[in-house]
């Protein structure tokens, strides 16, 4: 199932040795916990959660460093990083940094911090990584088009009863299920 590279970085090896991989928690339990995090995000800040927004702003910050004049010609980018605006001066960036930290801490704690590629049994690593890049590209593009990803639209808008977010959520599942049969080789 899992292909682990033979040449693991030293840090990863030691972590792997130190920790026994533990099973994931029950999905209903995880759902309730995630719901509580989501509720607290709204209750305390009013803003909810987000992921693709933070990635977007990191990217714009990099673009602003390399080609600032380009930013000033594209209205969509201008809105975030034009003039003296700092694209990193946004709550969603800090949510993303926290997400990385939280994921890393839990992965380390539960012995799941290891270099590996998860894939279906019938495809090569190269195919898996190519598909991951293409899928990521579509996800990134679609998330900006839809003004939010699974967290920023589906979780936030789902819990606050936004009509558009519910329509979006069904569209994501519809898109996935429509194609799932044709790409079953990737995962089964």
């Amino acid at each position: 199932m899992t292909a682990v590279s033979r040449e693991l970085p030293r840090a990863a090896t030691s972590v792997r040795v130190a920790r026994q991989e533990k099973p994931y928690v029950n999905p209903y339990f995880a759902g309730i916990l995630l719901g509580i995090v989501l509720f607290l995000a709204f209750f305390i800040t009013g803003n909810g959660l987000g992921a693709s927004g933070g990635m977007n702003r990191l990217l714009v910050a990099a673009q602003d460093l390399i080609v600032p004049s380009h930013i000033d010609r594209v209205p969509y980018l201008l809105d975030m990083a034009g003039g003296d605006r700092n694209p990193l001066d946004s709550w969603v960036v800090f949510i993303s940094i926290g997400t990385i930290l939280g994921g890393a801490v839990s992965g380390w704690q539960h012995g799941r911090m290891k270099v590996e590629i998860n894939k279906g049994p019938r495809i090569s690593n190269r195919t898996r990584l190519l598909m991951a890049f293409i899928g990521g590209g579509l996800m990134g593009y679609g998330a900006r088009l839809a003004r939010g990803c699974t967290s920023g639209q589906a979780l936030n808008g789902g819990a606050t009863l936004s009509v558009g977010s519910w329509a979006f959520m069904f569209a994501v599942f519809a898109g996935g299920y429509m194609l799932a049969y044709f790409v079953r080789r990737l995962w089964n």
Binding site: A146, L179, V183, L186
Partner: peptide, 22 residues
């Protein structure tokens, strides 16, 4: 735009195996 973006993301999900947060 939300529905079209959602459909594209669904395709990205099944090909790539993740959504941005995960």
């Amino acid at each position: 735009p939300g529905i079209l973006g959602g459909l594209i993301m669904g395709v990205g999900f099944i090909l790539g195996g993740f959504c941005p947060g995960t």
